[in-house]
Design a protein around this nucleic acid. Structure first.
Lengths: 241, 241
DNA sequence: CGTTGGTTTGATTAATGTCAACGCACGTGG
DNA sequence: CCACGTGCGTTGACATTAATCAAACCAACG
C-alpha cells in the first residue's frame, strides 16, 4: 500500500513514478506520540518538517484567560509546519488528539522536493487548501449555530477522511472527546453534547465514543449548507477508484 | 514614493534594486471600483492576479440562509487571488468595501516573479501570513466575546495599516459600516454597536464614521489578548524608519 | 425640506455558557 | 472477583451573551 503522503498529494494530480519513489524514500521510521501531547509549541522554530502519518492531531491557539480554540484538525498526510522555511517561529501550537505517528523530514529534503515541479505544485496546493478550510471554518463559527456547525464539520471530515482511505460507507472513527469538539467548534462542551443529541434525535447521525455513523448525508449537507468545493478534491482520486 | 506592493513585500525582507524595479514595472494603470462591488465571484477562474492598491476590500462567504461572513480584509498591497495558479476556481467571493483601485497582473508576469528567489519567498511569506491571520480570526470568533473581539480586530488593523503607511499616532480610517463590521465579527450589527459603545465608555477608543482613534492601545491589547506575533512583521520595516 | 443610509436605543426572545450533579464504562489494585 | 477511582458523557437549573424587531435619530445630500 502506498504511503499517506503520496496519496494525499495525488489528490491534486497524478505524480510520475520517479516522484512517487522519491516521496516514498522520505518516509522514515516514524516517532510515536501518546494522545494529548504537544508536538510543537508556539514560539519554537523547528528544524524539520513534520508529517502526520497516523492518528489525529490539531493546531490550536490559546487566549489570555485560558480558553483554547482548535484551528485545524490534522489527518494522516497533513503537514504540521511547512511554514518553517519562511517564518521565524511557530505562531501556534500543535498537539496530538489520539496516539499518533509522526515522520520528520529534514529541511533540506523538503527543499529538494520543491525543485520537482509536480511536487512543488502539489505542496502549494496543499497550503491553499488549508487556507480554504480555514475560511470555511470561519464561516462556520461566525454564521452557523451549534447543530449546523457540527453537521458541517462532520461532512467535511467524512470527505477528508475518505480522501485518505479512512472513511467509507458513511462511517468513520474520530478520536475527540466532547471537550475537544467544543474547542473545535467554539462552543461549550455541554452545548456540543446537546447539539449532538439534537442531531441524533433527528436521525441524522449516530456518535458513540469514537465511532460516527452518518445516517443521512444528504440532509446533513443540506442543513449545514455544506458545499465540498472548498476542499478542492477534484484532482486524481476523488471517488473510490 | 514606492508602490504598495514593494512596501508590502519588504515587510518580509529587503529586496534588491533590480527586484524592486521589476515589481514597479508590473504596476500598470489600475481599474477603479465603486464601493460594494464584487471584484471576483465564487466559481470564477480569473486569468489575472489582482492586487489592491488603494481602498478596502474583503473576502467573504455566504451561507444557505443568506448570512454573510467576511473572512479577510484586504488592504493596499494585498493580493486577491494568488490561488489562481493552482486551484481551478475561486471558493469564495471578493468585494470592495470602499472605492478601490485594483491592478491586474497577467498570469505570466507572476510566474516570472516566482523565478526571482527573493520575491518568490516574499510571496510565499505573504500567503503564510494570510493563513496565520485566518487562524487568529478563528480564535477570535470562537473564544472571545463581542468587546474583546472588536478590540482584537482594531489592534490588528492598526498594525497592518501602519505597516503600509496608512496609520500612525493611534488613529486610522476604516471604511466599514456597522453591518459590515458585524459580518467580519460573526455578530449582529446591533450587538456590534453596543460593544463599540462599551469600548467608548471605557475610554479605549473613539469611532465616528470612518475615523477610529485608539485612546489606550496597551489596554486594548491587554483586554483582547492581542499578540502581534501572528502578523510576522519582524522583517525589514516594522517600525517607522 | 424630504429622502436616504447609517447609527443608536429599548424591549423581547433565542442561543449559548456555567455550575453542579449523576451515571456509565473501564481499568486498577486489593 | 469485587470495590473504587477516574474520565467522559448526560442532564437539569440558572446566568449570561447575543439576536431580533422596531422605532427614533442624525447627518449628508439632492
Amino acid at each position: 500500500m502506498e504511503n499517506v503522503l503520496t496519496r494525499k498529494l495525488e489528490c491534486f494530480g497524478q505524480l510520475s513514478g520517479s516522484d512517487r519513489a522519491h516521496l516514498n524514500s522520505l518516509i522514515q521510521e516514524p516517532r510515536h506520540f501518546a494522545a494529548r501531547q504537544d508536538i510543537i509549541r508556539e514560539g519554537e522554530a523547528p528544524a524539520n518538517v513534520r508529517l502526520i502519518t497516523e492518528g489525529l492531531a490539531c493546531r490550536y491557539g490559546v487566549t489570555a484567560d485560558g480558553g483554547r480554540q482548535i484551528t485545524a484538525l490534522l489527518l494522516p498526510g497533513d503537514f504540521c509546519d511547512l511554514h518553517v522555511f519562511i517564518l521565524k517561529a511557530m505562531d501556534h501550537s500543535i498537539s496530538t488528539l489520539s496516539t499518533c505517528k509522526v515522520v520528520d523530514i529534514p529541511r533540506k529534503d523538503v527543499i529538494e522536493l520543491t525543485e520537482r515541479p509536480a511536487i512543488a505544485r502539489a505542496l502549494w496546493w496543499a497550503t491553499l487548501v488549508d487556507e480554504a478550510v480555514l475560511r470555511a471554518w470561519l464561516v462556520n463559527l461566525g454564521r452557523r449555530e451549534a447543530e449546523e456547525r457540527i453537521s458541517h464539520l462532520v461532512c467535511e471530515l467524512y470527505l477528508r477522511l475518505q480522501a485518505v482511505g479512512l472513511a467509507a460507507d458513511n462511517h468513520f472513527n474520530l478520536s475527540v472527546t466532547q471537550d475537544e469538539l467544543a474547542d473545535v467548534m467554539g462552543l461549550s462542551s455541554v452545548h456540543c453534547n446537546r447539539a449532538i443529541r439534537g442531531l441524533r434525535h433527528a436521525h441524522l447521525l449516530e456518535w458513540k465514543g469514537k465511532h460516527i455513523e452518518i445516517l443521512d448525508l444528504e440532509r446533513l449537507k443540506m442543513m449545514s449548507g455544506f458545499n465540498a468545493n472548498y476542499l478542492h478534491l477534484t484532482g486524481g482520486k476523488t471517488s473510490n477508484s
